[in-house]
């Protein structure tokens, strides 16, 4: 199986760098980074990643809005939300917007990789 290609979207370089490290150690290829929801949408469309990891709170366009728009593209990709916001209504909204997993910050390497592996289970 070829390396899964991942797009990371977070307004903080701090989290992008941390996530990139975790993913690369776990055998994923990070094909792009975005600093806001709008950029994430553009890059998801042009780079065709297998996985898009979206932060919820981002400037310009939130991760949830970006998730909704990316889902409407009907591309073969999985959307994972990644946020420190753990309120149930937000998680629910993210799922309605098309997310299939939710990573809670602070980032925990094991938890992140486990979540991504679990995505494979329901890959068509």
């Amino acid at each position: 199986m070829s390396k899964r290609r991942v797009l990371i979207a977070d307004d903080l370089l701090f989290f992008r760098a941390a996530l990139r490290d975790i993913l690369e150690r776990g055998g994923y290829e990070v094909i792009g980074e975005a600093a806001n929801g709008a950029e994430a949408f553009d890059k998801a469309r042009t780079l065709s990643p297998d996985i898009v990891i979206l932060d919820v709170v981002m400037p310009v366009k939130t991760g949830i809005d970006a998730a909704r728009e990316i889902s409407h593209l009907n591309m073969p990709l999985k959307i994972v939300m990644c946020s420190s916001l753990g309120y149930e209504p937000i998680v629910e909204e993210a799922i309605r917007a098309g997310a299939c997993a939710y990573i809670l910050k602070p980032l925990n390497e094991e938890a992140v990789l486990q979540t991504l592996v679990s995505l494979e289970a329901d890959t068509p």
């Binding site: 307004d11 903080l12 701090f14 989290f15 709170v57 981002m58 420190s84 910050k105 602070p106």
Partner: peptide
């Protein structure tokens, strides 16, 4: 968002 970002990074 500023507070949120500081909180998130600090937690990590």
């Amino acid at each position: 968002r500023h507070y949120h970002s500081i909180k998130g990074m600090s937690a990590s």
